Amino acid sequence: MKQQYEQILVTPKPFVKWAGGKRQLIPILHQNLPGAFGTYYEPFLGGGALLFHILTDKNGQKCSISDLNSDLVLAYTTIRDRIDALISSLKSHEKNYQKDSKSYYYSVRESNPRNEVEKTSRLIFLNRTCFNGLYRVNSKGKFNVPLGKYTNPNIVNEENIRAVSSILQTNRISIKCRDFESVLRDAKKGDLVYFDPPYQPVSSTANFTSYTTKDFTYDDLTRLAELCLKLDSKECHVLLSNSDSKEVSDIFAKKPWKITRIEVNRSINSNSKKRTGHFELLIKNY
């Protein structure tokens, strides 16, 4: 029992590095949360930085989280339900990686395990060892990022994933694999819906939108904007993160939206000099 208590004392953090992850923006996001809200919804879950912050800050908070990436959703449920088997599998990856990192990495990248624990273990292993910790799949749905240059990557990170498992078990959280529009059926007056979709490109070369095999297009952004208005008419609190692009500014230019421009660092840019001096938008209706 003592061990379980100690696990929860460790503040859970995202167990995967995700493009557009929000860990560094938590203080700003926290300031922009409504004072009180019902259920917390996050339909583009990704690394879940804000989710873990809210769960740590508000014990017993009811949450409904989802993503269209089925491997990612499986990872959350596996960490919640099968933590010991997952840690054992990750330790095995770590051991084999230390023997011959290059050939082992590419053999795991090529593999396609059917077992749920092995699938999640593969996702975490690749995320920890691939170039810049970037999750990306090609049009056929195959993970296609090369090996990263790490001397000693933290593949298992047991303390954190046990903390994640504990907090997912102790709180009232539902985890689903579904399209973001499904949230409209469930969200009620006073609930908070946070959208952190793949961002609109700010330039012709900045077109990373493929977390899943289906790109997040301008049409999807329009769908999202319409959904936000529907949620607003249901008197839900709506909070949205997106790129500082003309398309996003234009589509959310009118009431009820309030737009704040915030400075961010990009931890996933391969050129460290290009990681600073970026801006993104925070949009809300309250």
Results as ranks from 00 to 15, higher is better:
N157I: 03
N138H: 11
C130S: 12
V137C: 04
F143A: 01
N152G: 08
N127H: 00
A187S: 13
L134C: 04
A163F: 03
S139E: 09
S165C: 01
G148W: 11
N171Q: 12
G190S: 06
L134K: 01
Y135Q: 01
R128I: 03
V183N: 08
Y135M: 04
N160I: 05
K189V: 05
P146T: 08
S165K: 01
R172H: 15
I161N: 09
R185L: 14
R178T: 14
Y135T: 04
A163E: 09
N157Q: 08
S174N: 12
G141C: 04
S139I: 11
V137N: 01
L126Y: 05
L126M: 07
F180Q: 08
N132K: 04
K142N: 14
K176R: 13
F125W: 05
G190H: 11
L134S: 00
K189D: 07
F125T: 00
L184E: 11
S174M: 05
T170G: 12
R136Y: 14
F125N: 00
C177K: 11
K188G: 05
R128C: 00
R162H: 09
I124N: 01
K189T: 09
L147I: 12
V156D: 03
V145I: 15
T151H: 15
N127M: 00
K149C: 00
N127E: 02
S165E: 03
E159A: 15
I124F: 10
A163Y: 14
T151I: 07
I175T: 11
S182C: 04
E158A: 12
F180A: 07
N132F: 04
G190A: 05
N154K: 15
F131C: 07
T170R: 15
K142Q: 15
G133D: 06
S166N: 13
F143T: 02
L147C: 13
I167T: 14
T129S: 07
I167H: 06
F143P: 01
I173L: 12
C177F: 02
K188E: 12
K176T: 14
E158K: 05
V156P: 06
A187C: 10
A163C: 06
L184V: 06
N144L: 03
E159L: 12
T129W: 06
I161R: 10
L126V: 00
L126C: 00
R185V: 09
N171G: 07
S182I: 01
N127C: 00
I175A: 04
V164I: 12
K142R: 13
S139L: 15
T129Q: 04
R162W: 08
V156S: 02
S166W: 10
K188W: 01
G148H: 09
D186T: 10
R172F: 07
R136L: 06
R128T: 06
C130N: 09
A163M: 07
S139R: 15
I124D: 08
Q169A: 13
K176Y: 09
N160Y: 11
G190C: 07
V156I: 08
N144T: 01
K188N: 12
V145W: 11
F143I: 07
I175N: 12
K142W: 04
E181D: 10
R178G: 07
R128L: 04
G190W: 10
D179A: 12
Q169E: 13
T151M: 14
L126H: 02
I161E: 10
S165F: 02
C177P: 00
N171F: 03
I155H: 05
V164P: 05
K149A: 08
S174Y: 03
D186H: 15
N127F: 06
